[in-house]
Design a protein around this nucleic acid. Structure first.
Lengths: 160, 160
DNA sequence: AGAGAATCGTTGACTGCTCAGCAATTGATT
DNA sequence: AATCAATTGCTGAGCAGTCAACGATTCTCT
């Protein structure tokens, strides 16, 4: 076997490895799942999945003050990404910007009444899709382990 | 409680629900993981994660004929997305386009020697990151269950 | 108190994708 | 065999994000 044949062989082995397959599965499943949710939300509620994630945080505790910085960190977006996202959401009257008492650099974001109403409808759609493609396919006993494993992964990623 | 207060309350409950949290975790973990891999690959090998996914498929069985269509389906991209991705990869000499014997609409893609060499280096980086943030955080017994669960989710998504 | 470093949000230029529409080729129906 | 439908890849326009640079504000240190 000449050098390039050996390299091809090595490459084929690497490409077929267990780890590569498994990891690909995680990414693919998550991507497809998100596309599914996104399509459903856009079609039925005229919000993107990203906007929905913002609304979750704004509706969870209506009294809590949430800055753009906080949202950016939560959604793993850059600050400029958040600026533009909130621009669009403000344009759609889902959300309102306001000054942060005690720090004039910061901008606070809160849901409008309309935003909360949309969120409520969107949450129903979300629940339906998640139930069908995330909860149902996983056997009951495995569900708890799955979320625990994901929590561990997330923790490892945050810690470093 | 007036109607808008009740709505706020309902929204808060929906936003804090178990399902919403769990699902958010899946998406977030997958997103962060992919960003991690992508950064490492770009920095150390000058390929994006998406390009790496293409190379996996081209190197797995070097004799197998792989069309752009096939790649698009595999990576859940549109045909135009693949066109542009392969454009860039061809520009970087990672990949070569060729005619498909037996169907003149179709375009076959194959890895160049350089593409395979890059893939080999990239696979090492990939393995390192995956090991650290995907395998290690999940207790041994749970790993098998995790990938099985992901397989089920992926299956449910493909079937409909 | 004042200077320098750090943080927050915004903007311009870019990237990597999607969507809609296209031409070329192939498949199906009659 | 002729037509109509479906598939394949490509292109222009648009969208949602990034990165780099900036001004405004706040924090830190002496």
């Amino acid at each position: 076997m000449n050098p390039v044949e050996r390299e091809n062989d090595e490459a084929a082995r690497a490409a077929g490895s267990r780890l590569v397959q498994d990891f690909g599965l995680l990414i693919k499943a998550a991507t497809r799942l998100e596309q599914r949710i996104d399509m459903a939300l856009r079609k039925e509620c005229e919000v993107s999945h990203t906007m929905f994630e913002v609304l979750i945080r704004l509706c969870r505790r209506p009294d809590e003050e949430i800055s753009q910085r906080r949202l950016a960190d939560d959604l793993t977006l850059t600050s400029s990404g958040i600026t533009r996202l909130i621009d669009r959401m403000e344009g759609a009257a889902l959300v309102r910007r306001g000054p942060a008492p005690g720090d004039r650099r910061s901008v606070l974001v809160e849901a409008t009444d309309h935003g909360r109403a949309v969120f409520l409808r969107a949450a129903a759609v979300h629940a339906r899709v998640v139930e069908r493609y995330f909860v149902a396919p996983v056997a009951g006993a495995d569900y708890a382990r799955l979320t625990r494993a994901l929590g561990e992964i997330d923790k490892a990623l945050r810690d470093t």
